[in-house]
């Protein structure tokens, strides 16, 4: 586990969308990695891939509304050494093309980076057709696949850079709305290494993606009540940093997980497997309870579906009261 507490601010002033972090990272890769190519299925603006397209038009491949073709093409492009980054919404990056990913990319061990925006409820008003909440589960089940869900703009930029330098298929999940930028540019980022953001011995909070900032807010609330939480950003869901989970759970004896994803198949399930096999620990999971989303603003939806700092606080207090 990396101690990242010195690399975050608890009073962020800036707010940015994680997809823009992806766009910025991709543009940087255009300069630093000549073999990086990008494919997009008619969502260049939404994925913030326009700067890369304009800077490197010969390395940008508009495939139209044809995601299956895009995924298999990306697999083919690796033959000869290219590093393809595919861009579309998370729903169309996973469920729509699962068989293409499974056969042509994961089983075939192809060096494709599947970059997925608009994941989860925070996609908002478009509603449940587009709000995929099962993608982490689908992708983590695939052998050879790395699954990363960064916490803010800066970390998404860092993750985009980092995945270009590992060999093999990656699923990079990010989102639509703006959220606080609380990571510093200089924060170390290592795939597969969880990051400790706050330290405490009373309860462990393990969060990923959008829910990491909520976890920090929850820990600050708990602190006001004299409860010290260990806050861990599990940006890499696979391979999972089991050592970090075990170390923290050993000290606190209580674990709350938080994710913008179905309860079945998400981060919570992965953490539970590690705990069950190593150090059985009382747990609570803040996640979507086996239902589809709906239209609404991101904030309204997260409130209605119980994905908030308050929910993390409540589950933590439940565990402490056991």
């Amino acid at each position: 586990m990396t101690d990242s507490s010195l690399f975050i601010t608890l009073n962020p002033t800036d707010s940015k969308d994680t997809r823009s972090g992806f766009g910025a990272g991709l543009l940087e890769l255009g300069t630093t990695h000549p073999d990086v190519v990008a494919l997009c299925a008619d969502l260049t603006g939404s994925l913030k891939m326009g700067d890369f397209r304009d800077a490197h038009p010969e390395r940008f491949f508009q495939v139209g509304i044809a995601e299956a073709n895009m995924m298999s093409m990306a697999a083919g492009m690796t033959i000869g050494g290219k590093i393809p980054f595919t861009g579309t919404f998370a729903n169309f990056s996973t469920g729509r093309v699962y068989d293409q990913i499974r056969q042509s990319i994961a089983y075939s061990e192809k060096n494709v980076k599947i970059c997925a925006s608009h994941a989860g409820l925070t996609l908002g008003e478009d509603g449940a057709t587009h709000q995929i909440l099962e993608d982490i589960g689908m992708m983590k089940m695939l052998p050879n696949m790395t699954v990363i869900c960064p916490a803010d703009y800066e970390q998404t930029r860092q993750a985009t850079l980092a995945i270009a330098d590992i060999e093999g298929p990656v699923y990079l999940r990010f989102g639509r709305p703006k959220l606080p930028v609380f990571y510093n540019e200089s924060a170390p980022f290592e795939i597969g290494k969880a990051q400790k953001l706050m330290s405490g011995d009373d309860v462990t909070i393990i969060a990923t993606g959008y829910m990491v900032w909520e976890a920090v807010k929850a820990a600050l609330t708990l602190k006001d009540q004299g409860i010290n939480a260990d806050v861990i950003n599990m940006h890499t869901i696979k391979p999972l940093d089991a050592a970090a989970i075990i170390e923290s759970a050993t000290r606190t004896g209580k674990v709350v997980t938080a994710e913008e994803h179905q309860r079945l198949g998400g981060l919570g399930g992965s953490v539970a497997q590690v705990l069950a096999e190593n150090i059985p620990t009382p747990m609570r999971m803040v996640a979507v309870q086996d239902r589809f989303g709906e239209s609404g603003t991101p904030t309204q939806l997260m409130e209605k579906y119980g994905l908030t700092a308050d929910a993390i606080v409540a589950r933590s207090l439940e565990l402490i009261a056991l």
């Binding site: 083919g76 492009m77 033959i79 000869g80 393809p84 068989d99 056969q103 042509s104 192809k110």
Partner: peptide, 23 residues
Amino acid sequence: RVASGSLGQGLSVGLGAAETKKL
């Protein structure tokens, strides 16, 4: 060079390889 069996994917894979050859 790639797994196949689930049908319909090979033309896309070939096109990806063709793009890389062109580059």
